[in-house]
């Protein structure tokens, strides 16, 4: 068997194993599904009514941000999943087998992608209930969902690396989430970056989360509400879809090898 098809088979086996784990502990899905529901409702009714004089438009604007934030959080689930496998010694078993080195990571990020897709579905339904609509073309919408999944997958690789750095579930539970908050909030997922102080503004403008949120709005045909109508001047904001996809690819190019190298070294202690 060629190396590529052997790696694919190994990755498939690990994905299957992870999804069986999810099936047998459905509570693992709570985070991935309840959290987006909560965010949609909170943002729609707490913030939605507080900004501008057109709550419906702001609600629709927020959805892109919530999509981006939710898929970014996929990284934290990967962190915890990786750390749990390390802690339980399952990784030791895998590492003593003549299997592809990347398969455990590919399997983990793939199964987390499936869970993330489920979260997207739940969130979309929830969004429809609070008045969000896809107003663009079907092709654009498909590209929009594909881009969100690509971002989820890319973030998952960063998460896998952090999971191996943390080594146990307890550390992973903080390490996996803690960096998510600045990354998702110092963005224009929910507010405009132009009101932020200097360095934060630059960070927000070049933050992939901003680009993914803006790109989702663009691809789903969601108009910016009156108060936020002016698109920032920055290059990423002007080319949101392109910048979002380039960021995802860049994250993958950087973090796939780092994570695989780390995997080769980690011991489960």
């Amino acid at each position: 068997m060629t190396t590529i098809s052997a790696s694919t088979r190994d990755s498939g086996v690990v994905t299957w194993r992870n999804l069986m784990n999810v099936r047998r502990q459905p509570d693992l899905l709570l985070g991935a599904t309840l959290q987006p529901i909560m965010f949609v409702l909170l943002f729609a009714f707490v913030f939605g009514n507080s900004i501008g004089n057109d709550p419906d438009a702001y609600r629709e604007f927020l959805m892109g941000g919530i999509f981006a934030q939710t898929v970014a959080f996929n990284s934290a689930y990967t962190t915890i999943g990786m750390a749990a496998d390390l802690e339980k010694g399952v990784i030791d078993r895998f590492r003593s087998l003549p299997m592809s080195r990347a398969a455990v990571l590919v399997g983990r990020t793939t199964s987390d992608l499936v869970v993330s897709a489920l979260g997207l579905l739940v969130m979309s339904v929830c969004g429809l209930l609070v008045g969000w609509r896809i107003r663009g073309s079907v092709v654009d919408a498909v590209i929009g969902y594909a881009m969100l999944l690509l971002f989820s997958f890319a973030m998952s690789w960063i998460g896998a690396w952090i999971g191996m750095l943390s080594g146990n579930v307890q550390v992973a539970q903080s390490a996996g989430f803690i960096w998510m908050f600045p990354v998702t909030f110092i963005s224009s997922a929910f507010v405009s970056a132009s009101s932020m102080p200097g360095p934060l503004k630059v960070f927000a403008e070049w933050n992939p989360v901003t680009a993914v949120a803006d790109a989702a709005r663009e691809l789903f045909g969601n108009e910016r509400p009156g108060v936020l109508a002016a698109r920032p001047e920055s290059w990423p904001a002007q080319h949101a879809v392109l910048f979002a996809i380039v960021s995802c690819v860049a994250i993958l190019v950087i973090f796939t090898p780092i994570a695989v190298a780390k995997y080769r070294k980690v011991a489960s202690k």
Binding site: R17, K88, G89, V90, D92, R93, S96
Partner: peptide, 14 residues
């Protein structure tokens, strides 16, 4: 090789 480590490395949910 086949290894059985000191701490049983079975997947609890399988």
């Amino acid at each position: 090789i086949g290894l059985s480590g000191q701490y049983a490395a079975v997947d609890e949910h399988l």
